[in-house]
Write a protein that binds this DNA or RNA. Structure first.
Lengths: 340, 340
DNA sequence: CTGTTAGCGCCTTCAT
DNA sequence: ATGAAGGCGCTAACAG
């Protein structure tokens, strides 16, 4: 019936007339204990409602079964997908997940890292609040000094030296640009005012810069009859709406709009809708899938990345680092595909 | 510069020529230590790169700063929203979140609970894999015997006795039915074959039963010229698609289709689209928001529940239970609203 | 305000 | 195959 008082291995030991250590062994290294006694001990453990104390174990042993996940936004479906993958694979290796949603707040991120250090996490999968080069969080020193394995996911810290799983942002930009060349900026449609509007994240965000660079690389050859306007913002919906709304008012409808992530693309579409501009009037293309639109016979071409795969790879890299702390840091790149 | 060896309060104590306990106090109860010494200790802690050991503290103290969240599906946006709320509010009270995505697997759920018991979680927010009355997980006894506070969220266990935050499912069903009476099953449209198709979750799911009951309660008065067909499934997309597809083939297009959650509704719409049935031919209505459709001028009426609020309330209930384990279990109901 | 003592629950020696 | 002793890092409880 088990009382509310905590049951320890000592209780079990008393119950079966053995000592603590035998109980401990029976529960953790069954092969070191005679089957008969093991049996009795297991019975007793069950009967008494024994629950091992993870703190006591963690204090004694060096290896923890905890993996930390630090992310800026649970509600971004792309991140949810990655976390799902991480969680599922971590479980398979008998790790529990400690999740921190930093809400884009650098201070919370720092506290999250400290918590994970406190909890002796075996590894951390980190997607920081910012990937701008001047973001140099103070926890980096502590993290490096510790023996915790770290893998960055999607967003990376400048010059951190940790492993990373990132997207092929340059390629994504290039791919979008090539699509636009054949579907929007074709020579025969040339009007003398061919503007591409790129709605981006923060100006110094590595990811935005790379995606934009990909676009520029491909379109630069057409620079004579094609200009690229860029709106800097963040990776959320609301600013994208207001910025694009404002742009449309000032400069009219561009030939094409490229949204650098899902929420930005949706925001751009929203601004177009509000302005009463039919989607045929301009070509909208984005990065990240806009889910379920096929059900309504709507297609917005986009470069889609496999978040599940990225998450799984991040965990895999983490396991490698955890197994061998000396292993060279590794950067994996996940390439997307254009879905039209 | 801090070495890789763990720094403990003893190291700090040696460094400043004090004893452990003074260091401990300086770091945890600053007011009990002379400002000057406190200052020196804090300096030393920083310099040495001290990181408190959560396990040692947890072992010694009885109170943990951990809250467990157990959910069946991270990728359901409604759950992501609730988890976001929980995470944000937990942080405010200085709790860390340990997240378990059970993937709908009862065994994983049981292991998740055991992990949380091991980690001495202060509380658990639980949304089990099933809310069918014959799901009686084995961990219930252990959970009750422990002193961990538990709040169920959305899905509840039959007769568990724990607090809960649930949706007003009966009301949602009623609301949908009333809408249909004025928009689909009006007397003037009566044709003699007025069928409502309800696409539900598992047959014995409490949530599905309640939502269906709400529909029946309102429509029973019209039973003479109105029949309700029910398709049982689970709460995911794929089965809904195949079931509705099959239904359409066998019985033709019903006057209205009611999807009992987001994915089911989307699945039903998908089946209609595949069958080439225009959305004007039947009235589709659902529970849970279909996000961003307004951007494309598509409206599917639905009863929307505030997941963020539900999550926040669940955490609030949990804090109450944690503060006073004797507090009466409480069931809060979150009512949605019809969005057309 | 600071120190001594002791112990949280478990597991790593080293015996037997 | 089992046991005895000790300690992981931290903090109550009681001194002083």
């Amino acid at each position: 019936m088990s009382v509310s008082r905590k049951v320890t291995i000592a209780d079990i030991a008393r119950h079966v007339g053995m000592t603590n250590i035998t109980v401990s062994r029976a529960l953790n290294k069954p092969e070191m204990v005679r089957p008969a006694t093991r049996e009795r001990i297991e019975q007793a453990a069950l009967a008494l409602g024994y629950v091992p104390n993870a703190f006591a174990r963690g204090l004694k042993r060096s290896d923890s079964r905890l993996i930390g996940v630090v992310t800026a936004s649970l509600d971004n479906p792309f991140y949810a997908e990655m976390i799902k993958a991480i969680s599922r694979h971590a479980k398979q290796h008998d790790y529990a997940i400690m999740l921190f949603d930093t809400d884009g707040d650098a201070h919370l991120e720092s506290m999250a890292i400290d918590s994970l250090l406190s909890y002796q996490a075996a590894g951390i999968i980190l997607s920081p609040v910012s990937d701008e080069p001047d973001y140099r969080p103070d926890y980096l020193t502590r993290l490096r000094a510790s023996d915790i394995a770290v893998v960055q996911l999607d967003r990376t810290l400048y010059d951190s030296g940790f492993s990373a799983v990132v997207l092929d942002n340059l390629w994504a930009g290039e791919r979008v640009a090539r699509y636009l060349l054949t579907h929007a900026f074709t020579p025969e449609r040339h009007t003398g005012d061919d503007r591409l509007l790129v709605v981006a994240g923060p100006e110094h965000s590595r990811i935005s810069q790379e995606r934009l660079q990909g676009v520029r690389d491909v379109l630069s050859a057409q620079a004579d009859h094609l200009t690229i306007d860029v709106l800097w913002g963040d990776y959320t919906l609301a600013p994208a709406v207001t910025q694009v709304r404002d742009y449309l008012k000032r400069h009219g409808v561009p030939r094409a709009i490229f949204g650098l992530n899902q929420l930005i693309t949706l925001g751009s579409l929203k601004a177009l809708q509000e302005a009463g501009i039919a989607r045929e009037q301009t070509r909208v293309i984005g990065i990240d899938r806009l889910p379920y639109l096929d059900i309504f016979d709507i297609t917005v071409p986009c470069v889609v990345h496999d978040g599940y795969r990225a998450g799984a790879q991040a965990l895999e890299q983490l396991l490698i680092q955890m197994r061998d702390p000396q292993a060279e840091p590794n950067t994996l790149t996940v390439r997307g595909e254009l879905v039209t």
